[in-house]
Design a binder for these strands. Structure first.
Lengths: 119, 119
DNA sequence: ATAACATATGAACAACAATTCATATGAAAG
DNA sequence: CTTTCATATGAATTGTTGTTCATATGTTAT
């Protein structure tokens, strides 16, 4: 046990009550990690830009790279991250791979974020 | 200009059209940074846990630390981050500083995230 | 088959972020 | 005013992440 590492303060608030309440409604650790990982994906301007680009139209990798003025490799790495989070998906079209938004969660989440920063 | 660093692909899609369209609807760089910064805040399990704790009740620093089994210092550092993003706010109550959720964006954004990871 | 092209990937490097530890601040009680 | 307590902060450390560079994969066209 590493309980002794955490200092107990002596403030007058109801420790035990809160701790129990929290334990009850806190999601499972696994879900908390997944949730943080999802938000991490939105926490990078390159990925946000890619998502905005895909708001407009399904698009191949090289067009995304050109649109953002970045290298194909950098974009490809980030597309992989976005795909792992199931925010985007892709299909082949001839030589190109076309990426597109997987569902509407992306728009909603980014919309909520925008609402907050624009107060 | 560093335009020559970015390679142009020769795929048959309508480059110029897309680039223009994107430029039109892409938010200003400043907003994109703010947006990414906001999501970065949600991209850490410690901060997510703190927010969940505050869903239950306004709470002082030491109670938050105890609830999560973490040191006061670690929590205090993260509370600062959360406050800078205006997700939480605080008030003094005697010797303690009580933190509380600043508005309902937090619940909505985390709710959207949960929706996505739970498919 | 072979060449050309679009995309993916692995390793390396640099920038960043989270926790710890030690200590500072600042309110409250004696 | 001095002590105590709750919180804040700075520096150091360690782990993580984004881009670049070089190269691999796999499809299409000749």
């Amino acid at each position: 046990m590493s309980e002794e590492k955490i200092q107990e303060c002596k403030c007058e608030h109801d420790h035990i009550g809160f701790v129990d309440m929290v334990k009850h409604d806190m999601p499972a650790d696994e879900h908390l990690y997944d949730l943080a990982d999802l938000f991490k994906v939105f926490g990078d301007t390159t990925r946000i830009k890619i998502l905005y680009v895909l708001f407009e139209s399904d698009m191949c990798v090289c067009d995304i790279a050109d649109s953002l003025g970045m290298t194909q490799s950098a974009i490809s790495h980030q597309l992989k991250v976005l795909k792992q989070s199931k925010l985007i998906s892709n299909r082949r079209d001839g030589k190109s791979i076309i990426y597109y938004l997987a569902d509407d969660h992306v728009r909603t989440i980014i919309g909520m974020g925008m609402d907050h920063i624009l107060e």
